Amino acid sequence: MPISADHIRTTLIAYLDTHPEGKPDLAPVLALLDTGAGLTSRKEFRAHATAGAILAGPDNRILHIHHLALDKWLLPGGHLEPEDETLQAAALRELCEETGIPVTSVSPAGDAPIHIDVHAIPANDAKGEPEHQHIDFRFLFRTTSTDISTLQAEEVVDAAWLDVDAMKASALGQRVAIALC
């Protein structure tokens, strides 16, 4: 069964119960849900949900990918697909698709997102997409392997394992550092 608005709302409310400081940034997302916005559709250009993965290796370094279209180093992740049953499952699917890491080598570090971020995505004329917002539900995973076998060439041009210190300036980085202690 595809991800529902109820699943997004439940995940968001549980996250805000743990991280109430996020309420001002995430209140617009709840308002969109209240209006019936289809946040699981990438055609909802006010904002739509995406799922991201933070993958910690055996030495606690974090996997980053160099995204082709955005020409930036990012964490693996992307749009929801109809076959995704949960936001966490979508994050795991994106991680494995983009890096070639087998799903059997990855385990979740918990059930809830470690961070939810709302950020602007620039317009993409080639795809007919205006500038819009991504609501990125980010989940922490662990792996015992650092072997990245096959990058998804149409989206990813490189991958690197970086120290968590490279992320510490952000709320996400601080949460990851604490979770990995």
Rank of each mutant, 00 (worst) to 15 (best):
M1D: 11
I3F: 11
I3P: 09
S4W: 10
T11C: 13
T11Q: 04
G22L: 02
G22F: 13
K23V: 05
T35C: 06
A37W: 13
L39T: 05
L39E: 04
K43W: 02
E44S: 09
H48L: 01
A51F: 01
G52Q: 02
G57M: 02
P58G: 12
D59I: 01
D59C: 04
R61N: 08
L63M: 04
L63V: 07
P76Q: 05
L80T: 07
E81A: 12
P82H: 09
E85W: 00
T86R: 06
A91T: 04
T99E: 08
S105L: 14
V106L: 10
G110A: 13
A112F: 00
I114P: 00
H115N: 10
D117H: 08
A120K: 11
D125C: 05
G128E: 09
E129L: 13
H132L: 07
H132Q: 09
H132E: 03
H134Q: 11
I135D: 08
T143A: 07
T144A: 10
T144W: 00
T146M: 06
D147T: 13
Q152T: 02
E154V: 05
V157S: 13
A159M: 02
D163W: 09
A166T: 15
A166Q: 11
M167T: 00
L172T: 14
A177T: 02
A177Q: 13
I178A: 15
C181Q: 15
